[in-house]
């Protein structure tokens, strides 16, 4: 049953597959992001409460969702790496982590900027922002651990274990932060409801969700290709692949 998967434990086969898929993913990313953003920014109606500031939702929510999804994917790769000792899964961790961290940063930035007109301050200890901040710490921990070891495989294993521990803790952290937030609802903060959204606003959001999903996957693929090449640099296929890139091999 798993036989079709088996060739992809081989780096070269994985590289060929990713290389073949990446242009398609990138193209669909550009299309869906462009449609989602233009639709959301220009065509979706303004919110009756928040006016046009709510349009930040079209990046804030997708980036928040896929920052968490990327962490989950990283933990799955970690589990595969630990259980079946598949090297390509180990290399997926440094490919995914920075992309997920970038998504987390985007969610934090947009959340803070959205908070300014709504709450009057750049930073509010709102449940979603706080859990995103903690998620960023978790990403930083995984990346720091991955690069802390001299031996790459040990680092990958350590990062895998930490990612799995983190994924078990993530729901606990998320719900405890949410609970904490309802508890400390200060009088100064008038918490605004994320708009219970009308269909005319929902459709562009769904399109941008798709766009961010494809974007996350494309960025991970780009990094993953590099990781594959980096670990196989001494192999002929990697050297051939790299010398096929024109600009450098002719000149410098």
């Amino acid at each position: 049953m798993w036989r079709w998967l088996h060739p992809y434990a081989k780096p070269e086969a994985t590289y060929r597959l990713v290389d073949k898929l990446l242009p398609w993913f990138a193209a669909f990313t550009v299309v869906s992001l462009a449609v989602g953003m233009i639709w959301g920014l220009a065509y979706a109606p303004a919110d009756y409460q928040q006016g046009d500031s709510y349009r930040i939702i079209y990046i804030h929510v997708p980036s928040a969702i896929f920052s968490m999804a990327a962490y989950f994917a990283m933990a799955v790769m970690g589990a595969i790496a630990l259980i079946w000792q598949i090297k390509t899964a180990e290399w997926a961790i440094p490919a995914i982590a920075p992309v997920g961290a970038a998504m987390t940063v985007v969610a934090l930035l947009t959340g803070a900027i959205w908070g300014k007109p709504m709450w009057g301050t750049w930073w509010v200890w709102d449940a979603r922002l706080t859990s995103e901040l903690i998620l960023l710490f978790l990403y930083v921990g995984v990346m720091a651990l991955y690069y802390a070891f001299d031996d790459v495989r040990t680092g990958a294993k350590a990062a895998s274990i930490l990612a799995i521990v983190g994924v078990v803790n993530l729901p606990i952290i998320h719900y405890s932060v949410e609970w904490w937030n309802t508890l400390h609802q200060g009088a100064t903060i008038t918490k605004f409801e994320r708009p219970s959204i009308a269909t005319s606003m929902l459709w562009p959001l769904l399109v941008s969700l798709l766009g961010f999903k494809l974007l996350t996957i494309s960025l991970v693929m780009m990094r993953f290709k590099n990781e594959l090449l980096r670990h196989e640099l001494h192999r002929p296929w990697a050297q051939k692949e790299l010398s096929a890139d024109k600009e450098l091999s002719d000149g410098v």
């Binding site: 920014l41 930040i56 990046i59 985007v106 930035l109 900027i113």
Partner: peptide
């Protein structure tokens, strides 16, 4: 609608 700075800043930074 007056929120241009915030909307465009967040899109630009992202």
């Amino acid at each position: 609608g007056g929120y241009g700075f915030y909307v465009w800043l967040s899109f630009f930074l992202s």
